[in-house]
Simulated scan of single mutants.
Amino acid sequence: MITCHCNYITEREIEDVVIGFLREDPWQLVVPNKVYHEMGRRGRCCGCFPSVIDIIIRTTVEFHRHLKGGASEELETVVSKLDELRTRLTAARNKVFVA
């Protein structure tokens, strides 16, 4: 699936880059700019960044679940807090666009 239409970047390409970073250091912070830099690209309209962040989070969670052989309580707490934050930010973003 195409995630970034400006750069023609697929979801799979993003996942591969994130997994590569996590193999180097499982606890490093991965952000969209770092992913794009690794691919030799840059954000243009940046409309895809919320989706890229979701892909980074999902891929990181799956990586750590696989690394630990299942979900840990700490990981589930972090995922829960990220979901709450995403919900709040999405609501705030939608409110700005509607107003």
Rank of each mutant, 00 (worst) to 15 (best):
M1P: 13
I2S: 07
I2Q: 10
I2P: 10
C4F: 01
C4W: 00
C6V: 10
C6S: 13
C6W: 04
N7P: 07
N7H: 05
Y8N: 13
T10I: 05
T10D: 09
E11L: 06
R12D: 15
R12H: 10
E13P: 03
I14E: 01
I14M: 02
I14R: 00
D16R: 06
V18I: 00
I19G: 05
I19V: 15
F21M: 01
L22N: 02
L22V: 01
R23D: 05
R23F: 02
R23C: 04
R23N: 06
E24W: 05
V30Q: 01
V30C: 02
V30L: 03
K34W: 02
K34E: 09
K34T: 08
V35W: 00
V35C: 04
H37T: 15
E38F: 03
E38Q: 08
R41S: 06
R41A: 08
R42G: 12
C45E: 03
C46N: 13
C46W: 01
C46E: 10
C48Y: 04
F49R: 06
P50S: 01
S51C: 05
V52Y: 00
V52N: 00
D54R: 14
D54H: 07
I55Y: 01
I55Q: 01
I57Y: 05
R58E: 09
R58N: 15
R58I: 06
T59H: 00
T60D: 06
V61N: 08
E62N: 12
F63P: 07
F63T: 02
R65G: 05
H66Y: 08
L67Q: 07
K68Q: 15
G69F: 00
G69L: 01
G69A: 02
G70K: 00
A71C: 11
S72V: 05
E76K: 04
T77A: 14
T77Y: 04
V78R: 12
V78I: 15
V79A: 14
S80H: 12
L82H: 05
E84Q: 12
E84N: 12
L85W: 12
T87M: 10
R88G: 05
R88W: 02
R88I: 13
L89H: 07
A91F: 03
A91R: 10
A92P: 03
A92D: 05
N94V: 07
K95Q: 14
F97N: 13
V98D: 07
V98T: 14
